[in-house]
Design a protein around this nucleic acid. Structure first.
Lengths: 162, 162
DNA sequence: TATTGTTATACTCTATAACTATA
DNA sequence: TATAGTTATAGAGTATAACAATA
């Protein structure tokens, strides 16, 4: 329960951010940090015709073991129908291709083309710079620990990619 | 640079999440964690006719020192025009009201009504449960440290709300 | 009967520009 | 002239339901 204002008149005095329950709220902090990171990422990727979402799909398509669209939707927490349009876009630009899975003809495996791999590699450098500008706010010796904890929240138990 | 597949055929064998550069990418982890947190938050708040965004505005409007719409837009990293519709919605439901700032008649201070404070307090309990389900994945003794680091990333330097 | 990808639709979120009233 | 709020618009992101092909 918040305190009530002591006067009838609305008060505003301090120009700096002051006490607010919201700024102690982990979900809010997570959302705000993500907003900062997303903006930096999209700016860094814009020159490559990518956004954070399409970059993520392209990156997964570069893996040696490529994923079906269904798997991409689970990994990225996007609806299968959203994957369709992201892949459509990347495919129309020759960065990825769809191949029917021989063992399940319903499924389509998304694989990066050589061009897609080149574009992703170049974009990754720019993305990494953008990231640095966001996470450099953390004490250097704490960064990797923070990332581990973030991983515990972000990824399901099974996914151990150390 | 990613490894290339060793065969011409697309390969897919492991059903569990396997190695992927993306899963080491802090920005991606942040985005995925936020997606989980946001979904849980929106579900928890749905019963109160709120979403994470409108809950944040309402919470700031409950502070003893209320903010102008301009300040809300900076705190929440939303465009001023987005604040307009969020406040319109809350105001139409009698949860907040706009008051012209006597010291600057251009500015409007957003203040929660008594009803708004009641709704927020009830919603906060539900939101807190949802949060717990997300952040309980962290070791208990590390949680507050994680939140501090998250805060370093999320909030500008000046905002010290300890 | 269940699942993969697809299409379609609607709603929320993000970003921009232009307008008004005040400063 | 600059700033706070507003309106309008377009594009990106989110969520749902229904359908064809395949399992």
């Amino acid at each position: 329960m918040d305190q009530q204002p002591t006067a009838d008149e609305p008060t505003r005095s301090r120009s700096t951010l002051d006490d607010a329950e919201l700024f102690e709220d982990p979900s809010f902090l997570l959302a705000r940090a993500n907003s900062i990171s997303l903006a930096a990422g999209n700016t860094a990727l814009a020159g490559f015709g990518l956004r954070v979402r399409s970059y993520a799909v392209l990156t997964l398509a570069c893996r040696p073991t490529c994923a079906t669209q269904r798997e991409l939707s689970e990994l990225l927490r996007l609806d299968p129908s959203q994957i369709v349009s992201l892949v459509d876009n990347l495919q129309s630009r020759g960065l990825v291709c769809r191949k029917t899975d021989p063992s399940d003809r319903r499924a389509k495996i998304v694989t990066a083309t050589d061009l897609g791999r080149e574009v992703r590699a170049a974009a990754a450098l720019s993305a990494r710079d953008a990231q640095a500008s966001v996470f450099d706010r953390l004490p250097a010796e704490e960064r990797s620990h923070f990332f581990e904890l973030l991983r515990d929240i972000a990824l399901p138990d099974g996914s151990d990619a150390h």
